Simulated assay, not measured.
Amino acid sequence: MLDADFFHRWMTRATDLVSREADRLTDLDAAIGDADHGSNMRRGFAAVTTALAEEPPKTPGAVLTRAGRQLISTVGGASGPLYGTLLRRTGKALGDAPAVTEQDLAQALGEGVAAVAQLGGAQAGDKTMLDALLPAAEALGTSFGAAREAADAGALATVPMRARKGRASYLGERSIGHQDPGATSAALLITALADTAGGAA
C-alpha cells in the first residue's frame, strides 16, 4: 500500500530531478518554446516541497491536491495549469483513503491525464506532455518500472513529430527534430515515481 509519506517522497524526488535537469529542459524549450520551462518547473516544484513540509497532508490524495494547487499558483505559462490539473485531478480521484494500491494510483493517474488532455485540447501525437503521460498511465497498471520506460520512450518519440498544440505548433515543420520539453519533464515526474517505489519492475 502507498501512504501519504510515499506520495510526499515522490514529490520530493520530482523536485530533485527537475532541479537537476532544469537546464536541459530550458535548452529543449529554447528550440521550440519560450526557453523558460526548466526555470518555471524548478521554481514550481521547489514551492511544492516547501508547502508539503510546512504542513504535511495526511492522505495520498491530499498530498497531490496540495502539490497541484501549488504548481498552478507558482508556475508560469501553460505548464502550471497543466501540471496542476494533472496532480489535483489524480489526488481527487484517490479520495480520502489513508493508503492506496498501485492499481488505485494507475486508475487515478489515468483520470488526471484525461483532465490534462481536456484542458489542453491535445491528444497522443501532438508533441506534448501527453505523449509521455498517456503511455505511462497505461503501463503503470503493470509496474512502476514499466511506466518509467513508457514515459521515457514517449518523450523520445516526440523528436520526429510536428507540434500541433502549444507554442511549438507555431513553428510548423521547424518543430520537427526537437524533443518536446513538456513530454521530457512529464517523463521526469514518472521517473521520480518509479525511483520512489524503488524501481519496482
Rank of each mutant, 00 (worst) to 15 (best):
P57E: 07
Q103R: 08
F45C: 01
L140V: 14
R162I: 12
G199Q: 04
D34M: 09
S73Q: 04
A31N: 06
P135S: 09
E54Q: 15
A35N: 09
I72K: 12
A157T: 12
G44E: 00
M41G: 02
G61T: 04
F7M: 15
G177V: 06
D96F: 10
V116T: 11
R167H: 10
E102S: 13
A67T: 13
R13I: 06
P98V: 14
G121K: 00
E111K: 05
T184Q: 05
A51M: 13
A35W: 08
D36Y: 01
E21R: 15
D195M: 15
P135I: 05
P160D: 13
L193I: 01
L140T: 07
L134V: 15
A47R: 11
L119R: 15
G80F: 04
G154Q: 08
A35I: 14
D34F: 10
A186W: 04
I72T: 09
T26P: 03
K127A: 02
K127T: 10
V18M: 03
L25M: 01
R167M: 09
L64D: 04
S169C: 10
E54S: 15
S175V: 12
A31V: 09
A146K: 07
N40D: 05
V18R: 00
S19E: 14
T15F: 01
H8G: 11
A14E: 00
R66F: 05
G177A: 07
H178E: 06
A53R: 11
Q118H: 10
T184V: 06
T65A: 14
G84Q: 02
E111Y: 05
Y170I: 07
A132N: 01
R66V: 00
A200V: 14
A168M: 02
E111G: 00
P56A: 12
K92V: 11
R9A: 08
G80K: 11
A200E: 14
M1G: 06
G44N: 00
F144A: 08
